[in-house]
Design a binder for these strands. Structure first.
Length: 487
RNA sequence: GGCCCUAUCGUCUAACGGUUAGGACAUCAGAUUUUCAAUCUGGUAAUCGGAGUUCGAUUCUCCGUGGGGUCACCA
């Protein structure tokens, strides 16, 4: 059998990071089995449609390296891959279900419906039109009475279903609503549309979030009534917020795009996400450190549905940060520079810096100096900004300069004098040459070298925290160093 | 509230029914250091509670409790 998985987001806003995780699992399962990864846009609810959301889905999948094999953008043999263009298909199958007696026309008025629903909350909703004979219903339809088509859920049946992740689950059909299949505007509902589309698109494995688990019996029934074989379903755990409930935006990004904007590397995000609810089957020796760094390729290789975890993981931003730092370290300076530039062009708001940064021949070295101290690409930018802009309004009244506060101007003068003697040809402006001289200035004042260098750091960077001072000064160049010392 | 799912350090997780319950993040202490980091060493920290099955339960069963999800003409 051909393995075909699908990721089916709704264009109702920014793609949630959990969507990327689901897409990752779909992608990995397809790739591992030399199958196809499909993306289908589920936009049957036009009222919630958000302009640009569909584009963002594809933009994000691309950014995270999860490009589909079939989609509205790639084409494929089972299109259209967007549900708003499949309206007629759903209607056709709904009518087939009516003909077979597995669905019915429902003419409940909104008010009437509301009352009924509230009264039957927690139990299976049944419409009074459920058993109305088809002739009467057809007549009402012909008369132009607004209607929906509902699934006729069977009474007194226990549906036993085996989920690929959650295991065996039982549902009592008396508690399942007569779900709407076709809305009054003629559009198919989610429940009908997924089943029809997954079947028609020959989806072999369905991965979706656990939120969908309670709606599964409706889909099981639809497969049965339509006479189709149901593919295995995998309800993967939901990502939880540290403060409880679903991951929310209160303490940071939750959208796929938001994390990229913040300056997280897509590969770090993916690595973090893959380990949320899945663990590698690699053999572990007792006490041995376990591997946690996996590239997408390695994940595809290792991934198996049997290694899913059932319980819902909490989204731990500290761990994400750690992954990002790890990837900073793994990458060569050249690679990191590329990631940084891509990020800078796409997301940075410091456009006034773009001329400096995009034309900086030393950018790679500068990034190399800060890569171990920054946690995001945004922080890399923050930490190299001083190379391009002289510090302003330096606050000398901090604890790090307490020991030297009264000799700051003397020190600066000494350093200026000392540096002036060195060549300003960039090749000869090397920190190894002037470092010993700097130390001897420190000795002259009989202060700790660290205190002395802090004065320099403040004058040049404007902050008590910086990348290695001497290397930074070397990259800055003699003229700029002197300029900042005399400012 | 009904229904469904779930339960190992604070968090992510590992552990053929037999381990001193392991690792990672975070945290704490120490080493190193021109700042901040990074690095190295070490430490604190968990099987939700109660029954049962078993020679033996983190592991299997049941009941509580906690957590999550869901009950729309939203997906």
């Amino acid at each position: 059998m051909d393995i075909r998985t699908r990721f089916a987001p709704s264009p109702t806003g920014s793609l949630h990071i959990g969507g990327i995780r689901t897409a990752l699992y779909c992608y990995a399962w397809a790739k591992k089995n030399s199958g196809k990864f499909i993306v289908r846009i589920e936009d049957t609810d036009q009222t919630r449609f958000v302009e640009g959301a569909t584009e963002e889905v594809f933009e994000m999948l691309n950014a995270y390296g999860l490009n589909p094999d079939e989609s509205m953008n790639n084409g494929g043999d089972y299109g259209p891959y967007i549900q708003s263009q499949r309206k007629d298909i759903y209607l056709k199958y709904a009518e087939e279900l009516i003909k077979k007696g597995y669905a019915y026309y429902c003419f409940l008025e909104p008010e009437e419906l509301k009352i009924l629903q509230e009264a039957t909350r927690g139990t299976g909703f049944r419409s009074k039109y459920r058993d109305q004979d088809i002739e009467t219903s057809k007549k009402m339809v012909d008369e132009g009475k607004p209607y929906v088509i509902r699934l006729k859920v069977p009474e007194n049946e226990t549906i036993i279903y085996k989920d690929g992740v959650q295991g065996s689950i039982k549902f009592d059909t008396n508690l399942v609503n007569d779900e709407i299949l076709i809305k009054s505007n003629g559009f198919g509902s989610y429940h009908l549309a997924v089943v029809v589309d997954d079947h028609l698109m020959k989806v072999s494995h369905v991965f979706r979030a656990v939120e969908w688990l309670p709606s599964t019996p409706k889909q099981i029934l639809l497969y049965r009534y339509l006479g189709w074989e149901m593919p295995p379903f995998y309800h993967v755990s939901a990502i939880l917020d540290p403060s409880g409930g679903k991951l929310s935006k209160r303490k940071g990004s939750v959208s796929a795009k938001g994390f990229l904007q913040d300056g997280y590397l897509p590969e770090a995000m993916l690595n973090f996400l893959m380990l949320l609810g899945w663990s590698s089957p690699e053999k572990r020796e007792f006490g041995e450190k376990e591997r946690e760094i996996y590239s997408l390729e390695e994940f595809v290789e290792l991934f198996d549905v049997k290694d899913f975890n059932k319980s819902n993981p909490v989204f731990n931003r500290e761990k994400l940060t750690w992954f990002n730092k790890e990837y900073f370290k793994i990458k060569t300076n050249a690679e990191l520079k590329e990631s940084f530039i891509n990020w800078f062009k796409e997301y940075s708001e410091d456009i006034d810096l773009s001329n400096y940064i995009l034309q900086d021949y030393d950018l790679e070295e500068k990034i190399g100096l800060v890569k171990e101290r920054a946690t995001t690409l945004m922080e890399i930018l923050e930490q190299i900004k001083f190379f391009y802009k002289s510090p302003k309004d330096i606050d000398w009244n901090i604890k790090q300069t307490q020991n030297t506060i009264e000799i700051i101007s003397d020190l600066k003068k000494d350093f200026v004098e000392m540096f002036t003697g060195f060549a300003d040809n960039s090749k000869e402006w090397k920190h190894e040459d002037w470092e010993p001289r700097m130390r001897s200035i420190g000795d002259k004042y009989s202060k700790k070298h660290g205190d002395i260098f802090m004065v320099l750091r403040m004058a040049i960077v404007g902050s008590p925290f910086s990348p290695p001072l001497f290397e930074s000064m070397q990259l800055l160049g003699k003229n700029e160093v002197l300029k900042r010392l005399t400012a």
